[in-house]
Amino acid sequence: MKENAIDIRTLDTIFNSMVRVMDQSKNDIFIISEQSRKSFEDMEKELAEVKEDISRAITECDYLEDMTRRSRLRLADVSKNFTKYSETQVREAYEVANDLLVRLSINRMEEKQLRIRRDELDRRLLALLETIKKADQLVSQVTTVINYLNMDLKDVGEALETARHKQEFGIRIIQAQEDERKRISRDIHDGPAQMLANVLIRSGLIEKTFAEKGPELALLELTDLKEMVRGALYEVRRIIYDLRPMALDDLGLIPTLRKYLSTVEEYEQGAEIHFQNTGQEQRFLSDFEVSVFRLVQESVSNALKHGKSKDIWVKIEWLRDIMNIIIKDNGRGFDQNEVKDKSFGLIGMRERIELLKGDMTITSAIGNGTTIYFRLPLRNEIITG
């Protein structure tokens, strides 16, 4: 009996020591987590400042590009009609053009360095966030074990069930990421990769045409090749925008939409996109802005691809607590009684509208174009500024 008593005391000592060590470890992990949170907050402030600098640099770059274009036109005129201008005016035109070119180059370099810094901060923030998550997870796991050693098993069962649900949720996220990677891979394979392969083949054909049939036919083939390269570039830019518009976080929804629609108009020859924005613009949570951008992007893409539209009107109206978006085109239109839900990306658009707690109305008829109307409530919890 005495030996049994000694064994119990020894086990009790070991047990208490183990609990103390684990409790101390939990405190140490918690301190690491808090220090990481402080670093995360400081880095977030720095990132916000860098984004403001990027926005300023982009605005300045747009201004300098416009001024450089004008100075080049001025220089071309002076060079062409140099007899009409004095030596001072000619020299001044050259100096102004050169100065603007230098300033533009410096500005672009500064913007590039700021973007590199922003990307670096984003990566470091993700690493810190991962550290915080792991620390919180370890604290949770250690707490679960301590509770297991000090409380009833039924409480531990509930904690483990919560952990199991979190693990399953994480697996679903990983699966979604893999599905997205497959989609991007498929888009690149079916789009730019195929187009570039065709460019390689056509370039060989142009060489052969030039050698056998002369420069005129080769020039025609070269014109077709140019259009093919233009299409490949458009597809690459579309994929980049599908991933995430780079300027959205920096500039906001409206400036990013202007840039996007201008780019689409540039690469869709013959198409005109009329953009109108009325009311006081606001900034929202990133997910909300991305969703609104995707709705406009999908609508415009459908108007061009399926509707074969030449004129598209995009209007955004800001009210006190409502955002109205109208996308109208003069394309082919479609019979709403016959169209299926999978047509024109309706499924994805309706899912986004449901997530945004808004409404979507589509009006269309064959030969009379299509009008899509989105009505989105501006809830206080999504407004950031």
Score class of each variant (00 low, 15 high):
residue 370 T to W: 06
residue 110 E to Q: 14
residue 320 R to F: 05
residue 14 I to L: 04
residue 358 G to P: 10
residue 125 L to A: 05
residue 366 I to S: 06
residue 297 Q to D: 15
residue 31 I to G: 01
residue 31 I to N: 09
residue 305 K to I: 08
residue 224 D to W: 01
residue 36 S to V: 00
residue 132 I to S: 06
residue 73 L to Q: 14
residue 207 E to T: 11
residue 116 I to R: 09
residue 123 R to V: 06
residue 145 V to T: 07
residue 134 K to W: 02
residue 217 L to C: 00
residue 295 L to D: 03
residue 4 N to V: 13
residue 316 I to D: 03
residue 365 A to N: 14
residue 327 I to V: 15
residue 5 A to I: 13
residue 146 I to D: 00
residue 242 D to H: 02
residue 237 R to N: 10
residue 34 E to W: 05
residue 136 D to N: 13
residue 21 V to Y: 13
residue 24 Q to P: 01
residue 260 Y to R: 10
residue 170 G to L: 11
residue 225 L to Y: 03
residue 128 L to S: 13
residue 303 A to Q: 01
residue 280 Q to W: 04
residue 39 S to F: 10
residue 326 I to W: 02
residue 82 F to A: 13
residue 381 E to Q: 08
residue 51 K to L: 15
residue 339 V to L: 00
residue 174 I to Y: 12
residue 11 L to R: 12
residue 329 D to F: 06
residue 354 E to R: 13
residue 90 V to F: 10
residue 16 N to W: 06
residue 86 S to I: 05
residue 209 T to N: 01
residue 261 L to F: 01
residue 170 G to F: 08
residue 307 G to I: 01
residue 131 T to E: 14
residue 28 D to L: 12
residue 263 T to Q: 10
residue 350 R to F: 09
residue 172 R to F: 03
residue 102 V to E: 15
residue 232 A to Q: 01
residue 134 K to E: 13
residue 311 D to W: 07
residue 175 Q to E: 14
residue 78 V to E: 05
residue 353 I to V: 15
residue 4 N to M: 09
residue 280 Q to K: 11
residue 125 L to T: 07
residue 183 R to W: 08
residue 205 L to D: 12
residue 342 K to P: 01
residue 384 T to H: 10
residue 282 Q to S: 00
residue 253 L to C: 09
residue 252 G to D: 04
residue 187 D to F: 06
residue 142 V to F: 02
residue 139 V to C: 07
residue 4 N to A: 09
residue 154 K to T: 12
residue 21 V to A: 11
residue 226 K to Q: 07
residue 31 I to V: 14
residue 106 I to D: 14
residue 352 R to N: 05
residue 193 A to C: 04
residue 231 G to K: 12
residue 310 K to A: 02
residue 44 E to C: 08
residue 369 G to Y: 11
residue 347 I to L: 08
residue 147 N to E: 12
residue 167 Q to T: 08
residue 75 L to Q: 11
residue 17 S to G: 04
residue 255 P to T: 13
residue 183 R to D: 06
residue 25 S to H: 12
residue 247 A to C: 02
residue 128 L to M: 05
residue 153 L to K: 02
residue 346 L to K: 10
residue 160 L to G: 02
residue 5 A to S: 12
residue 87 E to R: 11
residue 311 D to E: 13
residue 236 V to T: 00
residue 142 V to W: 00
residue 75 L to W: 10
residue 325 I to C: 01
residue 22 M to N: 08
residue 316 I to C: 05
residue 24 Q to A: 13
residue 41 E to D: 11
residue 176 A to M: 00
residue 46 E to G: 09
residue 14 I to F: 06
residue 275 F to V: 00
residue 367 G to S: 08
residue 172 R to P: 01
residue 385 G to I: 07
residue 335 D to G: 02
residue 64 L to H: 10
residue 74 R to A: 10
residue 382 I to K: 03
residue 329 D to K: 03
residue 43 M to S: 07
residue 227 E to C: 03
residue 78 V to I: 15
residue 285 L to K: 05
residue 364 S to I: 05
residue 100 L to S: 12
residue 337 N to M: 07
residue 258 R to H: 11
residue 148 Y to T: 04
residue 339 V to Q: 12
residue 43 M to G: 05
residue 65 E to R: 12
residue 365 A to R: 14
residue 365 A to S: 15
